[in-house]
C-alpha cells in the first residue's frame, strides 16, 4: 500500500492503495467513476480509454503509481454536461447501439481532435483502430468525428 496523489477531473485527492492497481479499477471500484469501461484488461479494445496529461491512454494496464500528480480526465470530466463537441456530435449521429464501448471511443476521439483538429479519413481510421465496437457502429463514429472536427 502507498499514498498516491491523484488529480482526476480536476479533483485532487490522496488514495492509500496498492500502487500496482490499474487506474481502471481505481476509477471504477474506489472512486465510483464507472464511465470508464472494462473490456479486455490487456490494452486491446480501448473501452477503458482516459486522458493522462491530454493523451489517450488505456487505463486497464496503467498502474495507479504512474498517474501520480498527473492530470487525468475521464469521461465524467470531459465536459460539464455532455456538451463537449465530440459528445454532441455523437448524439447528433445517434452513434450508440449498446453503448458500452462509446465512452472509450469518445475519449480516443477527443484526444485525436485535440492534437489534430482536422483529421483525414486515414488519421481517423488509424487512431480509432484501437477501439473495438462489437455492435460495429464504426461508420457513425467516423462521421461523428468529422462533424466534431468541423464544429
Amino acid at each position: 500500500m502507498a499514498a498516491i496523489n491523484l488529480n482526476i477531473n480536476g479533483k485532487k485527492q490522496v488514495l492509500d492503495i496498492d500502487p500496482k492497481t490499474p487506474v481502471l479499477w481505481v476509477l471504477r471500484d474506489h472512486l465510483n467513476l464507472v464511465g470508464t469501461k472494462f473490456g479486455c484488461g490487456v490494452a486491446q479494445c480501448g473501452a477503458c480509454t482516459i486522458h493522462v496529461n491530454g493523451n489517450a491512454v488505456r487505463s486497464c494496464i496503467l498502474p495507479v503509481s504512474q498517474i501520480e500528480n498527473k492530470e487525468v480526465i475521464t469521461i465524467e470530466g470531459l465536459s460539464e454536461d455532455g456538451d463537449h463537441p465530440v459528445q454532441k456530435a455523437w448524439l447528433e449521429h445517434d452513434v450508440a447501439q449498446c453503448g458500452y464501448c462509446q465512452t472509450g471511443q469518445i475519449m480516443t476521439a477527443a484526444a485525436l481532435l485535440k492534437s489534430n483538429p482536422s483529421p483525414s479519413d486515414e488519421d481517423i481510421e488509424n487512431t480509432m483502430n484501437g477501439n473495438i465496437c462489437r455492435c460495429a457502429t464504426y461508420l457513425r463514429i467516423k462521421a461523428a468525428i468529422k462533424t466534431a472536427a468541423n464544429s
Binding site: V34, F38, I75, D81, G82, L91, G99, Q102
Partner: peptide, 15 residues
C-alpha cells in the same frame, strides 16, 4: 439513453 451513454452514466450491470 443517448446522453447517458455519452456521459458515462452507470447504465450497465457491471456498473
Amino acid at each position: 439513453e443517448g446522453k447517458n451513454i455519452v456521459t458515462g452514466k452507470p447504465l450497465f450491470g457491471i456498473d
